[in-house]
Amino acid sequence: MLSRDRYAARFRRLKEAKQGALMPFTVLGWPDEETSFSIIKTMIDSGASALELGIAFSDPVADGPIIQAAAHKVIENGYTVIQALDLVAMARKYDADIPVGLLVYYNHIMAMGVEKFLEKASACGVDGVLVADLPAESSDEVLSTATAKGISTIFIVSPLTREERLAKIVEHASGFIYLVSRLGVTGVDERNADRDSRLAALIASIKKVTSLPVLAGFGISTPAHAEKMMAFGADGVITGSKIVDLVSKAEPSKMESELSSYLKQMVAALNSVKV
C-alpha cells in the first residue's frame, strides 16, 4: 500500500465508525530495543489507530524532561538512528496497515542526507515524517523528496499560529495536522482551562482551510483530556510523555498490562464522544 494511503484509509474508517484516533508516541529503542518493540506491539494490540515514533536526539528542544530523559538514555546505550529505523521495519512487519509517523529532528536527516534518510524511512514502512525543528518556511528542503517517496509531511499548528501561517502550513501538510494543544514542550503538566477554552475555535479555523484530520498532542495524558479534545472538534489525540512515564514507573513484569489498560481507557474515551 502506498504509505500516504495508510493515513487516509485509517482516518476514513475511523470517521465512518464515528471514532476518535489514538496515536500513542514512544522513543524508538527506549529503554532498550526489546522492550521498545514490546511497547509498540502493546500499542497496536490495545487499539492504537496510528503510531508516532521518535528518533532519540541529543538536543530535543521541543521536548520536556520525560522524553528528553528517554532520548538521552537511548543515546547512552549506543542505539543508532539506523537501528531505530530498522525497529520501525519490525513494527511494520507486525502490522501491515497501521499508519506510522516518524518524529525526527532535522540534524539526523541532514547527517544522513535528505534523499538517503527518506529512502531508508520509506523502505522501513514509514508513512509520515514530522521534523520537529523544520517550520513551513524551511520545509522545501524535504518536501519534494518526501512526496516523491510517498511519505506524508506532518506539520504542527500551535495556539499562536496566525492565519497567514496556517495557510502556508496546510499548503505543505499531508497525512494529518498535529495540533499542539497547549503552549510549551511535551509533558504531563496541568492543563490551563482558560487556554483550553480557545481550542474549539482554533480547531474550527484549521478545519475551514483543510480537510486533513486534526490530532491534538502536548499535555494529553488522561481519558478526560481525550474527551475534551474530541468535544472541541479534534479527530483524535497523541499521547507520549504519559506513556514513557508509565513505562518507566511500571514493574517490568506488569508493564505491558498497565500500558494496555491505559491505552484501552484512552480508546474508550475517544469513542464515547464522537459527534
Binding site: 521541543a62 532535522y106 525543528d133 517550520p135 518556511e137 524551511s138 504542527i156 500551535s158 501561517r165
Partner: peptide, 22 residues
C-alpha cells in the same frame, strides 16, 4: 518572516512551529 537570515548555506530558521510567532 521577512527573510530567513542566511549566510550562504548557514543560518536560517530551524525551530519548532511553536517558536515561530516569537
Amino acid at each position: 518572516m521577512r527573510t530567513l537570515g542566511k549566510f550562504g548555506r548557514y543560518g536560517g530558521v530551524y525551530v519548532p512551529e511553536t517558536l515561530m510567532p516569537a
